[in-house]
């Protein structure tokens, strides 16, 4: 893509995706629903992600510098009302699992100088490690701050012998100078899709789960194929009145909780959050 083409088509690029019916004929479009009301902030999803995706543990000091490599992290927020309502203000945090939102119009994609990140036909924002040159522009442009940069050559020290034997062979061990991010457990999806294709069908609902969805003890994370209108995740999107192609969601009645984070930035994320409900008077 030449620079003049980029500048000329900038507006259309930002508004082109997603368009109506983009995934009508597609077999797959991966999406997620996270119910914040069910999330208890136990970090099981984070641990599962570390194990599944060969994430290095960076240590306290580097964590403090913001160099942690957690593809999914639990963010904590204290609502103003809630802090007043209890005599223990440090309690009652609201938890929000934050992972790559797999935006349909991802801000990270157009800024990569080498095209290491692009959009896959099944609606995922991909990162190709061996193409990445480490400019970190994508991370700077990501409104969710879910792209993580390898500041150190973690394979040298993160898995001392014999810990390297627990690495997942289906996932690359990233080296220094490479950006990485949540892949919706692409290795699992790919294995499932391959199996389904040989059998001449598409994946059934719930046949493949991401590591975080599988590990969640309260089933707060629902993962599935949004293009399959009968799947649980597609039905939840519909029931929560969240439209993939809109940047603000109108609800027909009170009490419908689905929303997408920072969707007014026209990112069109693939992850829907369900608002937390609390009875503060009880």
């Amino acid at each position: 893509m030449s620079l003049s083409n980029l500048i000329q088509n900038w507006n259309s690029f930002r508004t082109r995706r997603p368009y109506e019916g983009q995934y009508e004929d597609a077999p797959y479009k991966w999406a997620m629903v996270i119910d914040l009301d069910s999330c208890i902030g136990c970090n099981a999803c984070t641990v599962a992600c570390y194990a599944e995706n060969n994430l290095p543990v960076v240590g306290k000091e580097r964590f403090g510098k913001g160099q942690a490599m957690h593809w999914i992290r639990i963010e904590r927020y204290w609502g103003a009302d809630e802090a007043k309502a209890t005599e223990f203000p440090e309690r009652g945090a609201e938890y929000l699992p934050m992972l790559c939102q797999q935006c349909e119009a991802a801000p990270c994609e157009p800024v990569c100088p080498v095209g290491a990140t692009h959009h896959s036909p099944d609606g995922l924002n991909t990162q190709v490690y061996n193409r990445c040159v480490g400019s970190r522009y994508c991370s700077a442009n990501c409104p969710y701050k879910v792209r993580y940069f390898n500041w150190w050559n973690y394979p040298d020290r993160a898995w001392p012998n014999p810990l390297e034997l627990q690495l997942n062979p289906d996932v690359t061990v990233r080296s220094k100078g490479v950006m990485e991010k949540c892949t919706f457990c692409m290795q699992r999806l790919r294995a499932g899709m391959d199996k389904a294709k040989t059998e001449g069908r598409i994946l059934a609902d719930g046949e493949v789960l991401t590591a975080c969805a599988q590990a969640c003890p309260t089933s707060a994370i629902t993962f599935g194929n949004w293009a399959d209108k009968k799947s649980k995740v597609a039905r939840m999107w519909k029931n929560q009145q969240v439209d993939l192609a809109k940047n603000s969601q109108e609800k027909s009645e009170e009490g419908i909780r689905g929303y997408r984070i920072l969707e007014d930035l026209n990112t069109y994320p693939s992850v829907v959050y369900l608002e937390r409900l609390r009875n503060l008077e009880a």
């Binding site: 692009h118 896959s120 991909t126 190709v128 061996n130 193409r131 690359t172 692409m186 790919r190």
Partner: peptide, 8 residues
């Protein structure tokens, strides 16, 4: 020709 078909 999707990148993630072969790259992991």
């Amino acid at each position: 020709n999707d990148c993630w078909l072969c790259h992991k």
